[in-house]
């Protein structure tokens, strides 16, 4: 096995050869689409680049890496500027907008020592790409069974907030509701009835929708995130309207919108379909003080579970946070880890 690694900057480089084949083979979610990564990278403070490790001509592993710098309210420089190479940077192996999944993906045929070698090769490529200013690499949201590929001397591993997962174990949505507490079951049914009968509320859902202004959706998502407060360590930038414009028209992305009688967007949800692991991705709502409605959140979950069951997907994931509420909806915790690699250990076994 001869592994080679390269970093592709979606802003400047063409799609890697064999990328479409690799994403299909590994069943990657829509956010790994190279065109979407390009839009995301241009509109980022810490742009994502794609690390590709090849065994001969075939892609053996890939990773999304955010090249980060001390927090400043500026987008990243255009990729042609070379003078930034001495400035301090660190790399976060992280998938923006899919925080509950690892950003490192291995070919299903690659196991054990092959994975460790691929990770080291990838790290050396990151070092070459960033230059001497690289402070280290952090692998975020790593599953427990992947940690061993990344650990080693000087490297630190710790457990993060878990992500929430709802395994599909029922023939229909009533089966899911039957497994919840009586109080939660009753309240979800009551909210659904109330929303159905409310003439002042327009609920629309659909795949690949183009009837909604993506900038309006982005504004609601960003104001929701700003209201909840962003952690200082969050390397992501605000969601860009131009990214959503492309993302929402994909046939595997469902947009759910709630509007009041005058057309004001009250809440929005995106559901990212996948053959096995469907993702309840963005949820954003206007607060009641600004005209928002209570309990749309639970109606959104009911609709997502309805899709999970009817489409026969294996699981629905719903990201991190609000674990107690999600537990009351039947979600379970899936362990996630961070592996921090300081500069002296980058690329070494």
């Amino acid at each position: 096995m001869t592994l080679t690694a390269a970093i592709h900057d979606p802003r400047a480089d063409p799609e890697p050869d064999g990328w479409a084949d690799f994403t299909a083979r590994c069943k990657l979610h829509a956010v790994w689409d190279y065109g979407l990564m390009r839009l995301e990278a241009w509109m980022s403070r810490n742009p994502a680049v794609l690390g590709v490790v090849r065994d001969g001509d075939r892609i053996a592993a890939a990773a999304t890496v955010l090249i980060c710098r001390p927090r400043r309210a500026r987008y990243a420089d255009a990729p042609t500027r070379r003078k930034a190479r001495l400035r301090p940077r660190w790399a976060e192996v992280y998938t923006p907008w899919l925080s509950g999944y690892p950003a490192v993906v291995f070919d299903p045929d690659l196991t054990g020592e092959g994975r460790r070698a691929a990770v080291r090769e990838f790290e050396r490529a990151v070092l070459r790409h960033v230059g001497p200013g690289l402070l280290g690499i952090a692998y975020r949201a790593v599953y427990r069974d992947m940690v061993s590929s990344m650990t080693g001397p000087l490297r630190r591993t710790w457990r993060n907030d878990p992500t929430s997962v709802l395994p599909n174990e029922w023939p229909n949505e009533d089966g899911w509701l039957a497994g919840l507490s009586k109080e939660r079951r009753t309240s979800i049914r009551r909210y659904a009835r109330k929303i159905d009968r409310d003439p002042t509320l327009e609920v629309r859902e659909g795949w690949g929708r183009t009837d909604t202004d993506p900038y309006e959706v982005a504004a609601l998502i960003n104001s929701h995130r700003a209201r909840l407060g962003r952690p200082r360590t969050d390397p992501r930038t605000e969601v860009a309207g131009v990214f959503l414009a492309e993302f929402l028209r994909r046939p595997d992305v469902r947009l759910l919108t709630y509007r009041d009688a005058d057309g004001t967007l009250l809440a929005v949800n995106t559901l990212l379909d996948h053959p096995t692991s469907t993702v309840l991705q963005h949820w954003a709502a206007r607060p009641p003080a600004e005209g928002g409605r209570h309990n749309l959140y639970f109606d959104c979950y009911l609709r997502c579970v309805r899709h999970l069951v009817s489409a026969g997907r294996a699981e629905l994931t719903s990201g991190r946070g609000l674990m107690d509420v999600k537990a009351s909806l039947g979600f379970r915790a899936r362990e996630l880890h961070t592996v921090a690699v300081p500069r002296p250990s980058v690329g070494r076994r």
Partner: peptide, 11 residues
């Protein structure tokens, strides 16, 4: 470098 509208348009 800092304004979303122009970043999108010009990039």
């Amino acid at each position: 470098a800092t304004v979303p509208f122009y970043r999108e348009l010009w990039a």
